[in-house]
Design a protein around this nucleic acid. Structure first.
Lengths: 198, 198, 198, 198
DNA sequence: CATGAATGAGCCTTCATTCAT
DNA sequence: AATGAATGAAGGCTCATTCAT
């Protein structure tokens, strides 16, 4: 019998390396050859677990999304309302090196999404999910009186979402300026605004 | 006697085609061969006016920035305060096909900027300029009483900027949802918030 | 105690699948991977019974030759002269789907034989055997008075052989034209000519 | 202005080398890399004149066919009847090294034709053309009294064609036996038979 | 000025083959 | 005996770039 290998585990290992490369050298230079070189695996090894490059790349995006979702889910356990919104936001911004890498990767996929419908839909789905989540937290917050009663939650959710994304972009593009602290302060502002909605 | 050629004009013609391609097929497929094919110029011709591909690509970004700046300047002539802010915002969002293309191109450069310091700085500069502009309009607005007196303008400017960028991203990634109308409504909301700052 | 395995039987099973693939998708696309996929065996399994690909391919040719020889032998049992010649001919032409496949495979080996001495010799041997057989039948036929007495049998045999091969080639390359019926009619002609030799 | 190059001439030069390789090392080993190595050209050079390998290979076949057609046409000029048939036949058999190479290449294409409709049609066309030619010569021969009056020309043409092809195959597969002389003698026999048709 | 001929690096992919289990 | 993990050679192809004309 051959060596028993946990395929999923192997795939994940490779995908982790790909993610690292996407975040550091970029998609253009993330070639299978280079992945092999960096990982110490052979080219054939990688293609043993992924049929082709596209599958490898899209698996990486999925892995990032899944991982991000899990950590968010875990952190949000038992939370609701404004507190949940705050936690969610902190995990949605590039506040830590790991989250920064996630953002860097996502921004590259945005570049693809801008010209590829396939990628665009994938991104669209994810943002939509975030929006839904924000909406739910706002609802809870309104019920808890943390947000003014008559507020237009959809408008509020959109506003919040845009704010978050805009801040994230800026934090990646101007890392010297939007330090962790400034990001947190900006986040304070955003959350506060929610509580002052009309 | 050599033919008299307007270098800049030629460069601009090429760059326009590159911009179109970046916005439609993406950076990866924007090859010199393809540019030559689409433009009817020869490969050598293109490389005669641009030392290499990188120069060609970055020239395209600069051209877009310059063009965008000019149209903004023109539209803002004689305007100030909230009105100027509104005009500037409308020219900063992907509200028209042309502006959509601009955004698509920029988002691809963001992907590069995420992993390349060179590109990051370029983007950073531009955003910084936008921020400065917003700040100036807010100042004028405050002086004109359009914005509450004691407002923290820097905070406000950041908030506005992030909002704008986040909305723009969403408009590109979810074009079916963030139609021109929804973008305008969201913009209304953003501007309104500025007038209600504390 | 190791499992008792009939090597030859296994080899034959594999070879049958290879033959099918050679006849349908061609040698180029008959890869070990694909053989494994089609047969349900593992890649390693196949290479366990055949040292390498070349051996596998040439074994397939040998198998086909052997099988063809057996069915010919059986059909010819007790026959001789013109009758035997006719039977042999019918089994030598691509008159049935199975025989068509055999021809398709052989024609691919001809392509190899044209540039490889090894393969050429293999083919040469087989043709030579056919020629000998034809010659024997003609001899019997002459003795039986089916063929004119003074005929040059060698010349006749060659002529017959060439005719047969040429007809077979045409039947494969122009299947729409050289249907089973037209082949049979052509065969009639060839046999008749033998009886009219000078 | 760049160097002016006669594309067709260049293509022909390359194709000649490809033909040589097809005839000597076979289709499988006729890779673009190897062609480049043997010809001294660079890989890019070859792909500058041929979009892809398939075009290169099929161009080679077409070139061979064209060349063969031209030399046949020239040799047949002013000839008709049995004389033309004889000339045509001699140019259709692998009697010279050059014609041997042609046959070797064709037999490899037959291998492909056996499993590829595209290739099959190409071959089919060519054989059909040969058949038509043979038919015409036979007609002329009959009118000239070289062939018995009531002969079934179609049957005769097929018979002749098959004979020719079968002889050619054998000459390639058993070069030691079917020398030039034996081929010519066999051809004598074939032509003679035509004159004795019933 | 302008062309396009020519190069070679590098990419993704397929494949036969070896080998530990 | 049998599996499939792993390797690396080789293939077709695209591309940016150089350079003679």
């Amino acid at each position: 019998m051959p060596k028993i290998v946990d395929h999923d585990e192997r795939r994940e290992k490779i995908v982790e390396i790909v993610a690292e490369m996407l975040a550091t050298v970029g998609a253009e230079r993330t070639t299978i050859r280079e992945i092999a070189r960096q990982s110490g695996y052979s080219r054939g090894f990688i293609e043993h677990y992924f049929h082709n490059k596209e599958e490898l790349i899209s698996s990486t995006l999925q892995w990032i999304n899944k991982r991000s979702l899990q950590s968010t889910d875990k952190a949000l356990e038992g939370k609701c309302g404004l507190e949940a919104l705050r936690i969610f936001s902190e995990l949605s911004l590039p506040l830590t090196p790991e989250l920064r890498n996630e953002w860097k990767i996502r921004m590259q996929f945005w570049g693809m999404a801008a010209v590829s419908d396939e990628h665009r839909k994938e991104q669209s789905r994810r943002i939509h999910a975030s929006e839904k989540l924000i909406m739910r937290f706002l609802q809870q917050a309104r019920e808890a009186g943390e947000v003014p009663a008559g507020s237009d939650l959809e408008l509020l959710a959109h506003s919040f979402l845009h704010h978050l994304y805009g801040l994230g972009c800026n934090a990646i593009l101007r890392p010297g300026y939007f330090t962790r602290q400034r990001q947190l302060r900006a986040l304070d502002h955003i959350v506060t605004e929610v509580t002052r909605a009309h």
